[in-house]
Amino acid sequence: MCRDCGCSLGPAAQRAPLAAAPSVPGKTETIEVITAILDENDRIAAHNRGHFDGHGVLALNLMSSPGAGKTSLLEATIRALDGKLKVAVIEGDLATENDADRIRACGVPAVQITTGNACHLDAQMVHDALDRLPLADLDVLFIENVGNLVCPASFDLGQHRNVTLLSVPEGDDKPAKYPVMFRAADLSLITKTDLLAYITEFKLERAHAALRQIGFQGETIELSNRGGDGFTAWLAWLEREVTSQRERAARGETAKPSIQPEGASAHAAGHRPSR
Protein backbone atom coordinates (compact mmCIF):
# COMPACT_ATOMS: atom_id res chain seq x y z
CA MET A 1 0.00 0.00 0.00
CA CYS A 2 1.14 3.50 -0.84
CA ARG A 3 2.47 5.43 2.16
CA ASP A 4 1.45 8.83 0.83
CA CYS A 5 -2.25 8.44 0.34
CA GLY A 6 -3.12 4.91 1.34
CA CYS A 7 -4.15 3.83 -2.16
CA SER A 8 -3.61 0.23 -3.14
CA LEU A 9 -0.73 0.77 -5.54
CA GLY A 10 1.27 -1.96 -3.91
CA PRO A 11 2.64 -5.03 -5.60
CA ALA A 12 -0.21 -7.00 -7.09
CA ALA A 13 -0.36 -9.94 -9.44
CA GLN A 14 2.68 -9.36 -11.58
CA ARG A 15 2.73 -10.62 -15.10
CA ALA A 16 5.75 -12.18 -16.67
CA PRO A 17 7.66 -9.82 -18.95
CA LEU A 18 7.14 -10.51 -22.64
CA ALA A 19 10.73 -10.99 -23.68
CA ALA A 20 14.05 -10.86 -21.92
CA ALA A 21 16.53 -8.10 -22.73
CA PRO A 22 18.95 -9.26 -25.41
CA SER A 23 22.07 -8.99 -23.28
CA VAL A 24 23.20 -8.32 -19.75
CA PRO A 25 22.71 -4.59 -19.23
CA GLY A 26 25.49 -2.31 -18.01
CA LYS A 27 24.98 0.09 -15.14
CA THR A 28 21.30 0.55 -14.50
CA GLU A 29 19.22 2.93 -12.49
CA THR A 30 15.59 2.64 -11.40
CA ILE A 31 13.43 5.74 -11.54
CA GLU A 32 10.20 5.88 -9.60
CA VAL A 33 7.72 7.99 -11.52
CA ILE A 34 4.01 8.04 -11.02
CA THR A 35 2.38 9.70 -13.99
CA ALA A 36 -0.79 9.01 -15.90
CA ILE A 37 0.03 7.04 -19.02
CA LEU A 38 -2.32 9.29 -20.99
CA ASP A 39 -0.76 12.45 -19.55
CA GLU A 40 -0.10 13.92 -23.01
CA ASN A 41 -3.69 13.32 -24.11
CA ASP A 42 -4.92 14.85 -20.85
CA ARG A 43 -2.76 17.92 -21.45
CA ILE A 44 -4.25 18.46 -24.93
CA ALA A 45 -7.73 17.83 -23.52
CA ALA A 46 -7.19 20.56 -20.94
CA HIS A 47 -6.08 22.86 -23.76
CA ASN A 48 -9.29 22.05 -25.70
CA ARG A 49 -11.34 22.73 -22.57
CA GLY A 50 -9.62 26.10 -22.36
CA HIS A 51 -10.75 26.88 -25.92
CA PHE A 52 -14.35 25.94 -25.08
CA ASP A 53 -14.34 27.96 -21.86
CA GLY A 54 -12.77 30.94 -23.62
CA HIS A 55 -15.83 31.09 -25.83
CA GLY A 56 -18.35 29.99 -23.19
CA VAL A 57 -19.19 26.91 -25.27
CA LEU A 58 -20.55 23.75 -23.65
CA ALA A 59 -18.81 20.63 -24.99
CA LEU A 60 -20.58 17.29 -24.70
CA ASN A 61 -19.09 13.89 -25.50
CA LEU A 62 -21.76 11.49 -26.80
CA MET A 63 -20.88 7.83 -26.42
CA SER A 64 -22.75 4.63 -27.20
CA SER A 65 -22.61 1.47 -29.25
CA PRO A 66 -23.00 1.88 -33.03
CA GLY A 67 -26.67 2.27 -33.89
CA ALA A 68 -27.91 3.44 -30.49
CA GLY A 69 -29.16 6.61 -32.17
CA LYS A 70 -26.54 9.29 -31.49
CA THR A 71 -26.85 10.97 -34.89
CA SER A 72 -30.65 10.62 -34.92
CA LEU A 73 -30.80 12.20 -31.47
CA LEU A 74 -28.69 15.11 -32.71
CA GLU A 75 -30.88 15.59 -35.79
CA ALA A 76 -34.03 15.61 -33.67
CA THR A 77 -32.41 17.92 -31.11
CA ILE A 78 -31.22 20.45 -33.69
CA ARG A 79 -34.68 20.52 -35.29
CA ALA A 80 -36.42 20.90 -31.93
CA LEU A 81 -34.09 23.69 -30.83
CA ASP A 82 -34.90 25.51 -34.06
CA GLY A 83 -32.00 27.94 -33.67
CA LYS A 84 -32.66 28.63 -29.97
CA LEU A 85 -29.16 27.36 -29.20
CA LYS A 86 -26.30 27.62 -31.67
CA VAL A 87 -25.01 24.14 -32.22
CA ALA A 88 -22.11 22.47 -34.02
CA VAL A 89 -21.13 18.83 -34.20
CA ILE A 90 -17.89 16.90 -34.47
CA GLU A 91 -18.57 13.45 -35.89
CA GLY A 92 -16.22 10.54 -35.24
CA ASP A 93 -16.40 7.46 -37.42
CA LEU A 94 -13.95 5.00 -38.89
CA ALA A 95 -15.00 5.99 -42.40
CA THR A 96 -17.50 8.06 -44.48
CA GLU A 97 -18.84 11.61 -44.23
CA ASN A 98 -22.38 10.25 -43.87
CA ASP A 99 -23.07 11.48 -40.36
CA ALA A 100 -21.60 14.95 -40.92
CA ASP A 101 -23.72 15.22 -44.08
CA ARG A 102 -26.84 14.36 -42.07
CA ILE A 103 -26.00 17.07 -39.52
CA ARG A 104 -25.21 19.67 -42.19
CA ALA A 105 -28.59 18.89 -43.77
CA CYS A 106 -30.10 20.18 -40.49
CA GLY A 107 -28.39 23.51 -41.12
CA VAL A 108 -25.59 23.44 -38.55
CA PRO A 109 -21.81 23.18 -39.00
CA ALA A 110 -20.33 19.70 -38.75
CA VAL A 111 -16.77 18.39 -39.00
CA GLN A 112 -16.24 14.73 -39.76
CA ILE A 113 -13.22 13.03 -38.22
CA THR A 114 -12.53 9.74 -39.95
CA THR A 115 -10.28 7.73 -37.68
CA GLY A 116 -9.28 5.00 -40.13
CA ASN A 117 -9.19 1.99 -37.89
CA ALA A 118 -8.92 3.85 -34.60
CA CYS A 119 -11.73 2.87 -32.28
CA HIS A 120 -12.02 6.18 -30.41
CA LEU A 121 -11.45 9.91 -30.67
CA ASP A 122 -8.56 11.45 -28.80
CA ALA A 123 -7.88 15.01 -27.69
CA GLN A 124 -5.53 15.77 -30.60
CA MET A 125 -8.14 14.75 -33.20
CA VAL A 126 -10.69 17.02 -31.55
CA HIS A 127 -8.16 19.85 -31.37
CA ASP A 128 -7.48 19.56 -35.11
CA ALA A 129 -11.22 19.66 -35.81
CA LEU A 130 -11.70 22.82 -33.71
CA ASP A 131 -9.83 24.87 -36.30
CA ARG A 132 -12.69 24.22 -38.68
CA LEU A 133 -15.49 25.32 -36.34
CA PRO A 134 -16.80 28.81 -35.50
CA LEU A 135 -16.40 28.40 -31.72
CA ALA A 136 -17.08 32.08 -31.05
CA ASP A 137 -20.57 31.70 -32.54
CA LEU A 138 -21.59 28.58 -30.62
CA ASP A 139 -23.51 27.68 -27.47
CA VAL A 140 -22.96 23.94 -27.58
CA LEU A 141 -20.57 21.59 -29.34
CA PHE A 142 -21.57 17.95 -29.55
CA ILE A 143 -18.71 15.53 -30.03
CA GLU A 144 -20.21 12.31 -31.35
CA ASN A 145 -17.61 9.69 -30.49
CA VAL A 146 -16.95 6.53 -32.48
CA GLY A 147 -19.73 4.02 -31.82
CA ASN A 148 -18.02 1.73 -29.32
CA LEU A 149 -18.79 0.86 -25.71
CA VAL A 150 -15.18 0.26 -24.68
CA CYS A 151 -12.40 2.48 -25.93
CA PRO A 152 -13.81 6.03 -25.98
CA ALA A 153 -14.27 5.99 -22.18
CA SER A 154 -10.50 6.09 -21.62
CA PHE A 155 -9.75 9.34 -23.47
CA ASP A 156 -10.52 12.83 -22.20
CA LEU A 157 -11.32 15.12 -25.13
CA GLY A 158 -11.80 18.35 -23.16
CA GLN A 159 -15.57 17.91 -22.85
CA HIS A 160 -17.51 19.22 -19.86
CA ARG A 161 -20.00 16.38 -19.69
CA ASN A 162 -20.30 12.79 -20.90
CA VAL A 163 -23.62 11.61 -22.25
CA THR A 164 -24.13 7.91 -22.96
CA LEU A 165 -27.00 6.37 -24.88
CA LEU A 166 -28.48 2.96 -24.17
CA SER A 167 -31.07 2.05 -26.79
CA VAL A 168 -33.92 -0.30 -26.04
CA PRO A 169 -33.01 -2.89 -28.73
CA GLU A 170 -29.57 -3.35 -27.16
CA GLY A 171 -30.95 -4.90 -23.98
CA ASP A 172 -31.25 -3.71 -20.41
CA ASP A 173 -28.05 -5.43 -19.23
CA LYS A 174 -25.61 -3.38 -21.34
CA PRO A 175 -24.39 -1.31 -18.36
CA ALA A 176 -23.42 -4.53 -16.53
CA LYS A 177 -21.51 -5.71 -19.60
CA TYR A 178 -19.71 -2.41 -20.25
CA PRO A 179 -19.38 -0.88 -16.78
CA VAL A 180 -16.49 1.50 -17.49
CA MET A 181 -18.34 3.30 -20.27
CA PHE A 182 -21.72 3.65 -18.56
CA ARG A 183 -20.17 4.66 -15.25
CA ALA A 184 -18.36 7.53 -17.00
CA ALA A 185 -21.66 9.22 -17.90
CA ASP A 186 -23.01 12.38 -16.31
CA LEU A 187 -26.28 11.81 -18.15
CA SER A 188 -27.53 8.43 -19.27
CA LEU A 189 -30.15 8.46 -22.01
CA ILE A 190 -32.31 5.39 -22.55
CA THR A 191 -33.25 5.89 -26.20
CA LYS A 192 -35.82 4.45 -28.63
CA THR A 193 -38.40 4.02 -25.86
CA ASP A 194 -41.07 3.97 -28.58
CA LEU A 195 -39.84 0.39 -29.16
CA LEU A 196 -40.60 -0.71 -25.58
CA ALA A 197 -44.03 -1.86 -26.75
CA TYR A 198 -42.39 -4.30 -29.19
CA ILE A 199 -39.25 -5.31 -27.31
CA THR A 200 -40.89 -6.50 -24.15
CA GLU A 201 -37.68 -8.20 -22.92
CA PHE A 202 -36.31 -4.74 -22.10
CA LYS A 203 -37.35 -3.71 -18.61
CA LEU A 204 -36.68 -0.12 -17.63
CA GLU A 205 -36.35 -1.02 -13.96
CA ARG A 206 -33.65 -3.58 -14.81
CA ALA A 207 -31.74 -0.96 -16.84
CA HIS A 208 -31.89 1.47 -13.91
CA ALA A 209 -30.76 -1.26 -11.50
CA ALA A 210 -27.85 -2.18 -13.79
CA LEU A 211 -26.77 1.48 -13.87
CA ARG A 212 -26.91 1.72 -10.08
CA GLN A 213 -24.86 -1.46 -9.65
CA ILE A 214 -21.97 -0.08 -11.68
CA GLY A 215 -21.81 3.07 -9.58
CA PHE A 216 -23.53 5.40 -12.04
CA GLN A 217 -24.64 8.37 -9.97
CA GLY A 218 -25.77 10.77 -12.69
CA GLU A 219 -29.17 11.57 -14.11
CA THR A 220 -31.16 9.22 -16.37
CA ILE A 221 -33.70 10.28 -19.00
CA GLU A 222 -35.86 7.86 -20.98
CA LEU A 223 -36.73 9.25 -24.38
CA SER A 224 -37.84 8.75 -27.94
CA ASN A 225 -36.73 11.06 -30.74
CA ARG A 226 -40.38 11.18 -31.77
CA GLY A 227 -41.06 13.58 -28.89
CA GLY A 228 -42.78 13.32 -25.53
CA ASP A 229 -41.86 14.14 -21.94
CA GLY A 230 -38.45 12.46 -22.10
CA PHE A 231 -37.38 14.44 -25.12
CA THR A 232 -38.54 17.66 -23.45
CA ALA A 233 -36.55 16.71 -20.34
CA TRP A 234 -33.45 16.19 -22.52
CA LEU A 235 -33.83 19.64 -24.07
CA ALA A 236 -34.29 21.14 -20.61
CA TRP A 237 -31.10 19.37 -19.37
CA LEU A 238 -29.25 20.76 -22.36
CA GLU A 239 -30.41 24.33 -21.76
CA ARG A 240 -29.55 24.04 -18.07
CA GLU A 241 -26.04 22.84 -18.88
CA VAL A 242 -25.53 25.61 -21.45
CA THR A 243 -26.54 28.20 -18.83
CA SER A 244 -24.26 26.64 -16.21
CA GLN A 245 -21.36 26.62 -18.65
CA ARG A 246 -21.88 30.30 -19.53
CA GLU A 247 -21.92 31.18 -15.83
CA ARG A 248 -18.83 29.10 -15.10
CA ALA A 249 -16.95 30.55 -18.07
CA ALA A 250 -17.85 34.08 -16.94
CA ARG A 251 -16.37 33.29 -13.51
CA GLY A 252 -13.25 31.86 -15.16
CA GLU A 253 -14.11 28.35 -13.98
CA THR A 254 -14.47 25.09 -15.82
CA ALA A 255 -16.06 21.67 -15.36
CA LYS A 256 -15.11 18.13 -16.13
CA PRO A 257 -17.23 15.00 -16.31
CA SER A 258 -17.76 13.75 -12.78
CA ILE A 259 -15.91 10.53 -13.55
CA GLN A 260 -12.85 10.59 -15.73
CA PRO A 261 -10.31 7.93 -16.46
CA GLU A 262 -8.37 10.69 -14.90
CA GLY A 263 -8.99 9.51 -11.38
CA ALA A 264 -5.60 8.22 -12.29
CA SER A 265 -3.92 11.51 -13.14
CA ALA A 266 -5.62 13.37 -10.29
CA HIS A 267 -4.20 10.73 -8.04
CA ALA A 268 -0.81 11.02 -9.69
CA ALA A 269 -0.72 14.76 -9.05
CA GLY A 270 0.06 14.05 -5.42
CA HIS A 271 2.86 11.72 -6.44
CA ARG A 272 4.90 13.79 -8.84
CA PRO A 273 8.36 12.36 -8.91
CA SER A 274 10.78 14.22 -6.71
CA ARG A 275 13.61 13.99 -9.19
Binding site: C7, S8, L9, S23, V24, P25, G26, K27, T28, E29, T30, I31, E32, V33, I34, T35, A36, I37, L38, S154, R212, Q213, G215, Q217, P261, G263, A264, H267, A268
Partner: peptide
Amino acid sequence: DWQVDVIAGEEMLLTRVEIETEPAP
Protein backbone atom coordinates in the same frame (compact mmCIF):
# COMPACT_ATOMS: atom_id res chain seq x y z
CA ASP B 1 -25.25 -0.01 -0.37
CA TRP B 2 -24.57 1.31 -3.89
CA GLN B 3 -23.61 4.79 -2.70
CA VAL B 4 -19.87 4.19 -2.71
CA ASP B 5 -16.74 6.02 -3.81
CA VAL B 6 -14.16 4.17 -5.83
CA ILE B 7 -10.79 4.47 -4.09
CA ALA B 8 -8.76 2.11 -6.29
CA GLY B 9 -9.11 0.37 -9.62
CA GLU B 10 -9.16 3.34 -12.03
CA GLU B 11 -5.37 3.57 -12.34
CA MET B 12 -3.54 3.70 -15.64
CA LEU B 13 -0.15 4.81 -14.39
CA LEU B 14 3.50 4.56 -15.27
CA THR B 15 5.17 3.79 -11.94
CA ARG B 16 8.78 2.73 -12.57
CA VAL B 17 11.39 2.91 -15.31
CA GLU B 18 14.68 1.05 -15.14
CA ILE B 19 17.28 2.50 -17.47
CA GLU B 20 20.78 1.58 -18.57
CA THR B 21 23.13 4.52 -18.08
CA GLU B 22 26.47 2.91 -18.97
CA PRO B 23 27.22 0.00 -21.26
CA ALA B 24 28.12 -3.42 -19.91
CA PRO B 25 31.90 -3.83 -19.51
